[in-house]
Design a binder for these strands. Structure first.
Lengths: 223, 223
DNA sequence: ACCTGAACACCGTTCAAGT
DNA sequence: ACCTGAACACCGTTCAAGT
């Protein structure tokens, strides 16, 4: 039997950081929905009510968790890169790598839209890359937003839809085809042989390269 | 005082379709979280338990709602288009228009990832456009997935993040800057004058055109 | 100062019982 | 056959009371 430790004067057992740590650890094992205040308290060996001394509410906690994930994106690899195209690729890969590490955290975005402050910090190297490409002012702004959207959107899509997609494609494709119009059916049937080979890594690279080529093409058409 | 109608033999008051109708109507006014079984029952002038005769559970209901939104995407405008680039643009705009009409439904995707069967049907004209561009086999598959991801990702991003983003940019940008590294700060400060003019329509067009140029560029580099 | 226990106002879902 | 009422097992959050 272990004796439950008690707080001694000025030394609380809990802290914001400890709660966020535990939430992040839990989110690597279980989906967002199951990370309840009660479960969190249990894992921290305390009561749900005790958590509220350190966090305002559950939404606030999830914001802190998201912030933690975003600030953990490692962009050091970009520092000595001289080609802006390769910089953008490295940026996109770094963001994706971190998000795929915490897929359940990525789903918070949808439950609770909140742009973390850390995102500003992460965006800086991306802006540098686009400046190296010769962009500034509104064009820089638009291109940056476009690139961020494509990268974040792709990752969101990958994490949230891909699993369901593959299941549907493999198991239910035939059933789904029954309900389609003849034209839709013909289009999909042609593609059935290619459906199985979903490779998310390759698709991500393909998408990023597509956008980078688009940016390049916009640049050269201006000159 | 109105008298509550009662079901007479073989003519139930409720139906799947009526429940989905009401859910969709509600979702135009209130966010997903507030569309509870109790609220839905109340609006339909019945009890929560009665709903379960027509739908398996809440998740199933939300799937049906999503299906309804997706099948409502109007792609007739694409039928007589001869330029594949313009076809892709029209496809993207049609998908966005419908999703923006039901922003709260779009957030279901994240709560409950499930690719609606109707999505197959919607994808067909997009595939036709890409075939017109000269694509087939794996290249067609990859490009289609890439384009769908960019379009869906952008819309998801727009609906879920943009509101928070604008708020943050306008109100909290200064506060956020305090926490940044000097380098990040300099990068963002340069852009502050341009931050206010967020135009989602223009950004969407910009993004779509960027990807279309990327696809074009990939096509021509193969020949 | 820090934490606990119990309560409040909600959920989704089930099922015996009514008409 | 169709619907109701009550119950079950959960939520997030609050707050008086304990140590």
């Amino acid at each position: 039997m272990s004796i439950k430790p008690r707080a001694v004067r000025g030394r609380p057992l809990l802290s914001q950081a400890k709660i966020v740590d535990k939430a992040l650890a839990l989110l690597q094992k279980i989906p967002l929905k199951e990370v309840t205040m009660r479960r969190l308290a249990q894992e921290l060996d305390t009561t749900p009510a005790a958590l509220y001394a350190y966090i305002k509410n559950q939404q606030d906690l999830f914001n802190a968790v998201t912030e933690r994930v975003i600030s953990g994106i490692d962009l050091r690899d970009l520092d000595h890169e001289t080609d802006w195209r390769e910089m953008l690729r490295k940026w996109a890969r770094a963001v994706r790598e971190r998000q795929l590490q915490f897929p359940h955290v990525t789903t918070i975005v949808q439950v609770n839209p909140h742009t973390p402050v850390a995102w500003f910090e992460i965006t800086e190297p991306q802006l540098r890359a686009l400046q190296m490409a010769g962009l500034s002012g509104y064009a820089l702004m638009d291109t940056s937003r476009c690139f961020s959207r494509v990268v974040l959107g792709s990752i969101l899509n990958e994490i949230m839809l891909e699993a369901a997609m593959i299941r549907l494609e493999r198991e239910d494709a035939d059933a789904a085809l029954e309900h389609l119009s003849p034209r839709g059916r013909a289009a999909i049937e042609n593609l059935l042989p290619y459906l199985g080979d979903q490779d998310n890594d390759a698709l991500f690279e393909f998408t990023i390269n597509c956008v980078i080529r688009g940016i390049e093409s916009a640049l050269s058409s201006e000159h």
